[in-house]
């Protein structure tokens, strides 16, 4: 056995072990914490498989923000009714085990059968790499997301916006609260934020800027910035506000708007819709998407339509 196989098996075992804790661990809160660890292990596996874009995205979104959203939702349940929030009615059932084993067997069979067939690189992937030179981009994934399958990305931004609007519609106005750590008088928190925040903004901008040529891009940058937004909310530097502001609304629709512009702008030049306009247009769209993603995810965490500066 080579070292590579050992690493693969170890990573696989870690991932399955964490998934076990998430799926059938005793306490809900522990399951959420393990889910965050699961996301990080997943990011390691993406890196191992040679997909750094996915590693960045999964570390920031899959582990970080999904975990933060789950925890804040759990916190809201505890605030409403501490007793019922943890009520875990799990009933061990033989049928569920059988079904789970069958499902796992199905996935394994499909995957292993597909692997045993003679595998050729997909035509679409080869075409992307062959035509990438013409677009002047260096990162094939950014190429797929914004040039070859830009329409998917437009719909994706629309889904994010719709999810936000949906959450606003069903969230009651009664209380706006995010539990902050400022109440605990932790002396080092502010210093830590002062160090981490500029770094996070720098990393976000860097990911956005290099995204055209290297691993990175609007999603990763946006989620890193959203992470800083969550940090600011937790320390009470930003607070949820109940009145929506025009600027915030603009930020929420910026991504969808910029991608729509990218679809329509070529019509002015007499090209078909969605024709490629060059790197500058992509940077414009990516910046707008980054702002939208960061603001939307931060507001989803805050559970409020807007934000305001904290008192201290």
């Amino acid at each position: 056995m080579t070292a590579g196989v050992v690493i693969d098996v170890l990573l696989g075992l870690i991932l399955v072990g964490l998934a076990t804790q998430v799926a059938i661990g005793k306490h809900l809160f522990r399951a959420i914490v393990f889910y965050v660890a699961f996301g990080l292990a997943m990011a390691l596996i993406w890196a191992r498989l040679g997909a750094p874009d996915l590693a960045l995205a999964d570390a920031a979104i899959g582990a970080g923000l999904t975990g933060a959203l789950m925890m804040v939702a759990f916190r809201r349940l505890v605030e409403i009714d501490p007793k019922q929030s943890q009520a875990l009615v799990t009933r061990g059932s033989a049928l569920a085990v059988v079904l789970a084993v069958l499902a796992a067997g199905m996935v394994a069979t499909i995957g292993l059968t597909a692997l045993s067939l003679e595998r050729q690189p997909g035509d679409a992937g080869l075409q992307v790499l062959a035509t990438l030179q013409e677009t002047g981009l260096g990162n094939p994934i950014t190429g797929v997301l914004l040039v070859f399958r830009g329409f998917d990305t437009l719909i994706e931004m629309a889904v994010l916006l719709t999810a936000f609007i949906g959450s606003r519609v069903i969230t009651t106005r009664s209380r706006l609260s995010v539990t902050t750590v400022s109440g605990f008088e932790l002396p080092l928190v502010r210093t830590l934020v002062a160090v981490i925040l500029p770094l996070a903004v720098l990393i976000g901008m860097h990911l956005l800027w290099i995204g055209s040529d290297q691993p990175g891009g609007a999603f990763q940058a946006g989620s890193v910035l959203a992470g800083s937004g969550v940090l600011l909310l937790l320390t009470g530097t930003l607070l949820p506000a109940s009145r929506s502001r025009a600027l915030v609304r603009l930020a929420l629709v910026a991504g969808v708007g910029a991608l729509c512009l990218l679809v329509l702008a070529p019509l002015l030049q007499g090209d078909g819709p969605m024709a490629y306009l060059g790197r500058g247009s992509l940077l414009f769209a990516e910046t707008a998407m980054m702002v939208s993603i960061a603001v939307t995810l931060t507001l989803l965490f805050a559970g409020s339509p807007s934000l305001k500066a904290g008192s201290s």
Binding site: L15, V16, A19, T20, V22, A23, I24, A96, V97, L99, A100, V101, A103, A104, G105, V107
Partner: peptide, 8 residues
Amino acid sequence: AIFGLGVH
């Protein structure tokens, strides 16, 4: 395995 755990 993870898919099975998820289903369970």
